[in-house]
């Protein structure tokens, strides 16, 4: 038997080790795409198959050239995404600031908690879309209304988790503060925030997903501004089914990246419990 070259040997080793983690998702995704393409080709559904992203010339252009800008609303997907993301950034930041602030207040104060918790639990259940008409009435303009929808959708997990994190500060840590006679301010910065941080980050991570969901919904019903939601709405109006598919894939990918980003931040900042 001849000895295999070392690089080839390593590859075989690597494949042996990782095939269990690589093969199943490949089969899963491949199988799903195949099923989708077959059902589209056989006419089982009017939805165009995944191959249409490439076969439709208009869609292929959109896929290959995300950075074009022909003025007005005729832009590449990157620009649509950027304006959506900037709205999310605004609404989400606002939600984070208000959510963490109110969460701490509610977590520290039993009476406040009793007063507002039912309200929070109730508002939390309202779907993002239901907020759109209310937001439009409140602000009379698309841009602030969209930001408000993001804000009101994504605030609840942050608020509720923060409040829980503050309530869950171990009595031991509180006793340390008590025995050392810490000032309120020092307690806040030295004990409360570090102790509640993991909870706060859990809330932030759940919320970023919700915020991204909300922006699409808001843009679809509030057309006329650039954004990925508008892009889908526009394609829908024009009957470009493959464009819609592309938009949806784009949305999923961005959402996934946002979530990973928050997860990474979480492990970086909120370690040690």
């Amino acid at each position: 038997m001849t000895t295999a070259p070392s690089s080839g040997f390593n590859l075989a080793q690597w494949w042996k080790r990782s095939r269990k983690t690589i093969l199943p998702p490949l089969f899963g995704i491949g199988g799903f795409l195949l099923f989708w393409q077959l059902s589209a080709s056989l006419g089982l559904t009017k939805l165009s198959g995944p191959l249409s992203l490439w076969t439709e010339e208009r869609t292929r252009d959109l896929l290959l050239y995300p950075f074009f800008d022909r003025g007005g609303l005729d832009k590449g997907l990157f620009w649509h995404t950027l304006s959506s993301l900037s709205r999310v950034a605004l609404g989400y930041t606002l939600a984070a600031v208000v959510g963490i602030g109110v969460g701490i207040a509610v977590g520290l104060n039993q009476a406040l908690n009793r007063a507002f918790d039912p309200l929070f639990q109730f508002l939390r259940m309202v779907a993002p879309l239901a907020w759109v008409p209310i937001a439009l009435v409140m602000f009379q303009q698309n841009q602030p209304a969209a930001i408000f929808v993001i804000f009101i959708t994504s605030i609840w997990p942050i608020l509720i988790n923060t409040a829980e994190g503050v309530r869950q500060i171990p009595q031991d840590y509180r006793n340390v503060a008590l025995v050392l006679q810490m000032s309120k301010k020092r307690f806040f910065t030295k004990i409360l925030i570090p102790s509640a941080l993991p909870y706060i980050f859990t809330g932030l991570r759940i919320s970023i997903g919700l915020a991204w969901l909300a922006i699409i919904a808001a843009e679809i019903v509030m057309p006329g501004t650039p954004g990925i939601g508008f892009f889908i709405w526009d394609a829908n109006q024009n009957g470009y089914v493959s464009d819609i598919v592309l938009g949806v894939i784009w949305i999923g990918a961005i959402g996934l990246i946002l979530d990973r980003l928050m997860a990474w931040l979480q492990t970086r900042i909120a370690t040690g419990r």
Binding site: D172, Y173, L180, K190, S195
Partner: peptide, 15 residues
Amino acid sequence: PDKMVVFQNYSLLPW
């Protein structure tokens, strides 16, 4: 702090 307590579960701040 004039009557400092050492708790059973140490009460150290993990961060």
